[in-house]
């Protein structure tokens, strides 16, 4: 696809290029997978599957183009095509479980110390975050998806259209409905913050 054809690259070179271009997306990709599946193990599997697919099709990936959008698209398709069927019912998530995990001391010594300390500093921030997370998790997966892509990952409508394989008009209307739905769920909380709906 690019000037240097994939065939010229040794496996080592290809692997190095793959890691350099695509592994930096691991964090947002895992977060996206987690928000879709609401399960850490499922997110783990989904992300691995995504990278393996990406590796298989890496020759078609044009260097320097939007690696993040490309991987998100592969992950989203994997989720729809195979994963959704076999994954555990993602209807509910016990967010306190996730909380417990990150606040526990077990994770120390595994390199996560700085982040976990960060996460428990502001209890008020935590409360808001929990409220938003449970409202978001209660949305249908299509609604959750557009909100994550737009508000958390900052994709443009055009990128979202490509990731989701839908027209921009559909991105807009879905996002609009998703936000209305989220607004409804957060209403109670919002009122307590003096935000009259």
């Amino acid at each position: 696809m690019s000037e240097q054809t994939g065939k010229q690259l040794s496996k080592e070179e290809k692997d190095a290029r793959f890691e350099a271009e695509l592994l930096p997306v691991l964090d947002p990709l895992y977060n996206f997978a987690y928000r879709l599946t609401l399960d850490e193990d499922d997110a783990n599997d989904l992300v691995q599957e995504t990278y393996l697919k990406a590796y298989r099709f890496f020759d078609y990936f044009e260097q320097g183009t939007n690696a993040k959008a490309w991987l998100f698209r592969i992950l989203k398709n994997s989720f729809i095509n195979e994963f959704r069927k076999k994954s555990k019912q993602p209807a509910k998530v016990d967010y306190s479980e996730v909380e417990g995990y990150y606040n526990s001391d077990d994770v120390e010594g595994e390199g996560g110390v700085a982040t976990t300390t960060d996460m428990r500093t502001e209890s008020v921030q935590d409360l808001i975050g929990d409220e938003v997370a449970s409202a978001l998790n209660a949305l249908p997966v299509d609604f959750r998806t557009v909100i994550i892509l737009c508000d958390l990952e900052g994709f443009t409508y055009e990128e979202m259209a490509k990731i989701l394989d839908i027209p921009i008009g559909t991105v807009r209307s879905r996002l609009h409905r998703a936000r209305n739905s989220l607004k409804e769920k957060l209403e109670k909380y919002a009122k307590s913050m003096g935000y009259n709906s």
Partner: peptide, 20 residues
């Protein structure tokens, strides 16, 4: 509220290694 307050989950250390 979403962009500023939703917590990011931490990627398990082992994930990058097993992908590689």
């Amino acid at each position: 509220l979403v962009s500023g307050h939703l917590k990011r989950v931490i990627v398990p250390e082992s994930l990058a290694l097993s992908i590689k």
